[in-house]
Structure formats: structure tokens, C-alpha cells
């Protein structure tokens, strides 16, 4: 069974049989009380009535979801039509996260492949090099990126002095900068699982393909990709999910100009709006999207394992 496969059921032994409740209790207490309960409470809050300027009134209401999905005009008296504002914010976040995932894959796959095909000694050094930046505080990395690419930052200074460009590139406060930030934040999440998959890849398959006159790219497409697919999918999920709710990159690199899911939710609890049920509803919708993705992933995973 693959390392890190969920259950470990195959290798399960029975030495401490009967002790499971005692051993699991701390996990249940901590995660159950301090994460599961709060999330359930948010679910409840999303169906309550909002209190002006923050807080909830204990009265059932669908207003939060209604506000999310239906547009009743600025004054709330027009016939309802589909509200695109929030769907748009979610869609943009999903698109943004998807693009970041795609770019990570495009760069991460060759990198992972390259590392996994070195000899074992230099392999661990390459791996070490790729993972170090990940261990540096995310905030500091994002700030460093901002410093580097802003109009008066070293990158533009350098390019101006060399004469490659006539005026600053204007990278900061753009979607490109946010993309760069997300890519920078989560690339190792893509490289590591793919690396693990490639490492287990049996190159006899490539040899067999080559014997049958398959070119390198055809082999990559038809033989290698299907085999390392689980690693790629795992990497995509590990990049996509945190990118979806990312807060720092849009805030620091994107200029906080447009709401993303993260800042939209934050705004309801910490900023101008003070609409808790709406923030709770947006949280629940985000959570549902993420759980759906994970569920599809888990089911596919099970299928491949049964095969």
C-alpha cells in the first residue's frame, strides 16, 4: 500500500485493541470542540437574522443565502434575479486558484521530474533546495515578493538601469502579482507529491515504450502521465484548496482592490459590513466547495486502489 494511504487498514495490528477510545479521546476533544463545534456554529449562524453592525439575532432566516444568490436591486424592491456579485467573487477566486494550480503544475511537474531522476545523493539536495523557501514564514515570503516587484523595487531599478525597460513594469497591484504570490506560496505543495509519484515510477515502462518506437513526448503523454496521475491530482488539491481562501497574496500583492473569498468573509467580521450571517453563509459555501472537491478526490482514490 502506498505510504500515507488513508487507513493503513492493511497493516493494522491489534496489540492495543480496546484502547482506541482512550487513545483517540484527546483528538476528539480538541478537534471536536475547537474546530468541529465552531464550524457547526457557523452553519447555524448562517441561518440566523443579522444584527445591525455585527452579531446575530436568534431568529431563523434565509436572508444570508438570499443575499448571496439573488439580486433585488440596490433598494431591495426589484423582482429577484440571479445575483452575480458574490458568485462573481467566488468564481474569480476559483479561477485565480485554478490558474495558480495550473501554473504550479506546468512548472512543478518538470521540476519534480528532474529532481526524481537525479541520483539519490543529489536528489535529496535538490529536494532540500526546493523545500527551504516553504519553511520561511508565508507572510515574510509574500512581503519579500512585494518588495522585489514593486515599481520602485530592486527588480524595476535593475531593469531600468540595464535599459531593458523604459519605465517600471507596473507589476504590483495586478492579478499577475497575485498569481505570482500564490505560485510562490504553494509551489512546493505541487512538487512534493509529484516527486513521490515519479520516484516510484518504473522506468522499465519507458524502456518498453522506447523499444516500441515511442518518442519521448509520446511516452510522457501515454505512459508516464497516467502512472503519476495520483501524485499530480494530490498536488493540484494541495495547491488549489489553500489558494482558494488565500488572504495574504491578494491583500499585499493585489492591493486589496477587489474582494476575494477570503477578504469578503473577513470583511463581514472585521470590517465595514458587519453582517455575520452573510459571512457565515459565504464560509459555508466555500467549505462545501472544498469538501466536494475532496470527496470526488477520495472516491477516485478508492477506485484506483481497488483496481
Amino acid at each position: 500500500m502506498a505510504a500515507g494511504a488513508p487507513m493503513g487498514a492493511g497493516t493494522s495490528s491489534h496489540i492495543y485493541e480496546g484502547n482506541a477510545p482512550r487513545l483517540m479521546a484527546p483528538s476528539w476533544i480538541f478537534i471536536g470542540f475547537f474546530l468541529l463545534a465552531p464550524v457547526i456554529m457557523m452553519a447555524v449562524y448562517s441561518f440566523l437574522t443579522k444584527e445591525f453592525r455585527g452579531g446575530v439575532i436568534w431568529e431563523f432566516s434565509l436572508a444570508a443565502y438570499d443575499q448571496f444568490f439573488f439580486d433585488r436591486g440596490l433598494f431591495g424592491d426589484e423582482p429577484p434575479s440571479i445575483e452575480w456579485t458574490y458568485i462573481g467573487i467566488f468564481w474569480r477566486s476559483i479561477w485565480q486558484a485554478g490558474l495558480a494550480t495550473f501554473v504550479c503544475l506546468l512548472i512543478g511537474f518538470p521540476t519534480a521530474w528532474f529532481i526524481a531522476t537525479r541520483d539519490p545523493q543529489s536528489r535529496s539536495i535538490w529536494l532540500f533546495l526546493v523545500t527551504i523557501p516553504y519553511w520561511v514564514n508565508l507572510l515574510i515570503r509574500t512581503v519579500s515578493m512585494k518588495f522585489l516587484i514593486r515599481d520602485t523595487g530592486p527588480l524595476n531599478e535593475f531593469l531600468l538601469q540595464v535599459g531593458v525597460i523604459g519605465e517600471p513594469l507596473g507589476l504590483i497591484n495586478t492579478n499577475f502579482a497575485v498569481q505570482l504570490g500564490l505560485f510562490y506560496s504553494y509551489l512546493p505543495f505541487m512538487v512534493l507529491p509529484i516527486y513521490a509519484a515519479v520516484e516510484r515510477y518504473d522506468f522499465a515502462l519507458s524502456e518498453a515504450a522506447a523499444d516500441l518506437y515511442s518518442g519521448a513526448w509520446t511516452t510522457l503523454r501515454l505512459i508516464i502521465l497516467p502512472v503519476v496521475k495520483p501524485g499530480i491530482i494530490a498536488g493540484c488539491i494541495l495547491v488549489f484548496v489553500p489558494s482558494l481562501g488565500a488572504f495574504l497574496a491578494p491583500d499585499l500583492l493585489g492591493g486589496a482592490k477587489t474582494f476575494m473569498i477570503g477578504s469578503l468573509i473577513e470583511e463581514q467580521f472585521k470590517g465595514n459590513a458587519g453582517n455575520w450571517p452573510f459571512g457565515a453563509a459565504a464560509s459555508m459555501i466555500l467549505l462545501t466547495i472544498v469538501l466536494c472537491i475532496l470527496l470526488v478526490y477520495a472516491r477516485n482514490q478508492n477506485k484506483t486502489e481497488i483496481r
Partner: peptide, 17 residues
Amino acid sequence: PEEVQVLYDAIWTNLKK
């Protein structure tokens, strides 16, 4: 007042969407 404030909130969210 609340009924007016929600309109301004809506304009703001609309602005940053």
C-alpha cells in the same frame, strides 16, 4: 440609520466585487 447604511454597504461591496 440602519435602513440607509445597508444601501451604502451595498454600494461598497458592489465597488469591490
